[in-house]
């Protein structure tokens, strides 16, 4: 009995090189897949990470490979797939840090995907769980990004301000807030005097034409009533004057909204091209 245990022990010792070799091979495969990933051959990288996962019987790379697949899909703008694999990685994470990192990745993908509401939700639940200063800083940072992508610049501004009052992204947010037109104001002044809202947003020709039409139809309506042509007056007033009056304040609103989107897009372009920090 004792002898057989001895033999078994020898067998185990001798078979260990085999195991070491299997491990090495897995490592080589991981390096190979990772090099594809680094070279931006993302589709092939996913194949190789999947191959790695298939042969990784010891499940050593379950977290790394899944999160790399997630990153590859993210690089290909296939956000749904990316989130699917990040969730898998989250499930197999070895430490609290890894778990946190994948959660942040999922949030970043949500920001890129344009599902900013979901990103903000996830950030709130992340905030309840992770309280260290660096983590709080990072959460606020991505919150700022989510607000920027959601076109909510005031909130983005205050999120970045919580990290650093002189944060470069905060400056950009401030610029946007300063440059933006007030949609309500544009609409309101066009209610009062047709065309003025359009002037406010810089659409002078349109504003002038709106004003002229309103004066013209207004004159005809009033004229009709003055001459006791009530039916004509009502018809012109309802069908034409009112139509152009409504068109006037609708235009003021539309122009302000369009201008604001242009301003936001200009800022976003600047952020994408000039900002050096981490981006989603």
């Amino acid at each position: 009995m004792l002898n057989s245990i001895k033999y078994m022990f020898i067998a185990i010792v001798l078979s260990s090189p085999l195991r070491v070799f299997a491990q090495e091979q897995i490592d080589i495969q991981y390096k190979y897949a990772d090099s594809l990933f680094e070279n931006q051959q993302l589709f092939d990288a996913i194949t190789e990470f999947k191959r790695l996962l298939f042969f990784d019987k010891e499940e050593r790379y379950l977290f790394d490979a899944n999160s790399k697949i997630g990153l590859s899909y993210k690089g290909g703008a296939k956000y749904n797939n990316a989130i699917f694999y990040f969730k898998k990685a989250e499930k197999y994470s070895h430490s609290e840090k890894q778990k946190y990192q994948t959660a942040v990745q999922i949030i970043r993908v949500n920001i890129l995907r344009g599902t900013t509401e979901r990103a903000l939700q996830l950030l709130n639940s992340l905030e309840r769980k992770y309280k260290s200063p660096t983590e709080i800083r990072e959460i606020n940072y991505w919150r700022g990004w989510a607000f920027m992508f959601a076109d909510r610049w005031e909130e983005a501004d205050s999120s970045f301000a919580r990290i650093n009052p002189n944060h470069p992204l905060k400056k950009i947010c401030e610029e946007v807030i300063d440059n933006k037109y007030s949609v309500t104001f544009a609409k309101l002044i066009s209610y009062i005097l047709p065309g003025v809202g359009q002037f406010y947003t810089g659409h002078f020709v349109s504003g002038l034409m709106s004003l002229s039409w309103n004066i013209f139809w207004g004159y005809l309506t009033v004229n009709a009533f003055m001459n006791d042509r009530v039916f004509d007056g009502m018809a012109i007033g309802n069908l034409l004057w009112f139509r152009f009056y409504r068109g006037n304040y609708q235009n003021a609103e539309k122009f302000a909204v369009q201008k604001n989107i242009s301003i936001a897009n200009k800022a976003l372009r600047k952020v994408q091209l000039e900002y050096k920090g981490v981006k989603p």
Binding site: M1, N3, S4, Y7, M8, I10, A11, L14, S15, P17, L18, F21
Partner: peptide, 26 residues
């Protein structure tokens, strides 16, 4: 005990052979 012994011997041979093979394919 004997069966275990034979089994183990067999295993050792197998492992040695295998690692030899692997040595060639590294």
């Amino acid at each position: 005990v004997n069966t275990i012994k034979y089994f183990t011997v067999f295993q050792i041979i197998f492992v040695l052979l295998n690692s030899n093979l692997i040595g060639q394919t590294t």
